[in-house]
């Protein structure tokens, strides 16, 4: 009896859902890091007359690509470039996409405000601290740099499923997804803020926006990448240093991927254009760093030309500016 009733119900639900066709909806899903930007764009865009409806989901970068490559969404937000396996999954389903950078996010290295020794660190020191071999070995501040106090060091960082973790490990350790495991991990950056603010021996990393909102409870560590050509010495992350590419290697681009087929729809093309045009203002409002003006122009040109495929087929590229990448391809021709 129960099964019969269930099928009846299923049939009824199907019939009901079939008759309720909606008007044009632009479906956005993906990274929860990029979510505030797309939420802002959707909010502002829908204030315009005759605008289509926009929905934004937060399935995560990976979860978003799964839906995107299955043709279930029109635009996929990503806090890292598309991976090779995801690109292949898309190709298999015949989903072509246009890759557009939308903003920069700085990853801040943060300590307790009472920490008066670690005002700056080099990438090599960060590597020594975070690489897999450091596990159970680099346990005290003095192990990181001679001259640092002989105190325990307590590490905090993004959880291993996040795009932030992927980028941080690539940039600092040199290998994506490789780090020591004995640190306090959380997917929620606010939890990391709490942890570091309450521990004098702490060091952690998370999105710059979370540092800027909690400045009075945290201390900032300047990062020295050891290269002179993009700003000599140790550099503090600010909107300016992230944008002009001197805060390296911990500035990362955020992306949106637009399905080529969806881009044929005038409302999707219109929304993408709107998002790129208003990005400088909206991105800053939600706490991220805007790309240089020219990058948005280049991105728009890319969308107009329906240029498909990823610039990052080899994984994240550290220390390359988006402008250079887009421009290089532009000159490189077809």
């Amino acid at each position: 009896m129960a099964t019969a009733a269930r099928w009846l119900l299923v049939a009824g639900a199907l019939a009901l859902s079939a008759c309720g066709k909606e008007k044009a909806v632009i479906r956005v899903d993906g990274s929860s890091t990029v979510f505030p930007i797309m939420e802002a764009a959707a909010e502002q865009y829908q204030k315009g007359a005759g605008a289509a409806r926009v929905t934004v989901g937060t399935s995560g970068t990976g979860g978003g690509f799964k839906k995107f490559c299955a043709g279930e969404t029109d635009i996929s937000d990503a806090s890292r470039p598309i991976k090779k396996t995801e690109d292949e999954a898309c190709a298999q389903k015949g989903v072509e996409y246009v890759e557009l950078p939308i903003a920069y996010d700085g990853i801040a290295i943060v300590v307790h405000p009472k920490n008066d020794w670690a005002k700056s660190m080099t990438v090599a020191e960060l590597k020594r601290l975070w690489e897999p071999e450091a596990q159970k070995k680099v346990m005290r501040w003095s192990d990181v740099r001679a001259g640092f106090p002989d105190k325990e060091i307590h590490l905090f960082g993004a959880g291993v499923d996040s795009g932030t973790y992927d980028y941080f490990t690539e940039a600092v350790v040199g290998k994506e997804h490789a780090s020591r495991g004995d640190y306090t991990a959380s997917e929620d950056d606010n939890v990391l803020v709490q942890g570091i603010a309450g521990d004098e021996n702490a060091l952690g990393f998370f999105g710059l926006a979370y540092y800027l909102e909690n400045k009075d409870r945290l201390g900032l560590v300047a990062v020295d990448d050891g290269k002179a050509d993009n700003g000599d010495g140790a550099i503090n992350p600010t909107a300016e240093t992230v944008q002009n590419g001197t805060y390296q290697p911990l500035s990362r681009p955020l992306f949106v991927y637009v399905a080529k087929k969806a881009l044929e729809r005038p409302e999707v093309a219109g929304f993408v254009k709107f998002a790129l045009e208003s990005a400088p203002k909206l991105v800053a409002e939600v706490g991220y760093v805007a790309l240089p003006e020219r990058a948005y122009t280049l991105a728009q040109a890319r969308a107009d030309a329906r240029k498909t495929g990823s610039l990052f087929t080899g994984g994240s590229q550290v220390g390359v500016s988006i402008e250079d990448l887009l421009g290089r391809e532009d000159k490189g021709g077809k």
Binding site: A13, L16, S17, A18, C19, G20, K21, E22, V25, R27, D29, S32, F35, M38, E39, A42, E43, Q46, R53, V54, T55, V56, G57, T58, S59, K67, E72
Partner: peptide, 20 residues
């Protein structure tokens, strides 16, 4: 709900059973 893809941002009310 998150797994089946309920949304983070919707600026309209559901109009039918098939609505996001």
């Amino acid at each position: 709900l998150i797994t089946i893809g309920a949304l983070g941002y919707v600026a309209f009310l559901p109009t039918s059973l098939g609505s996001a």
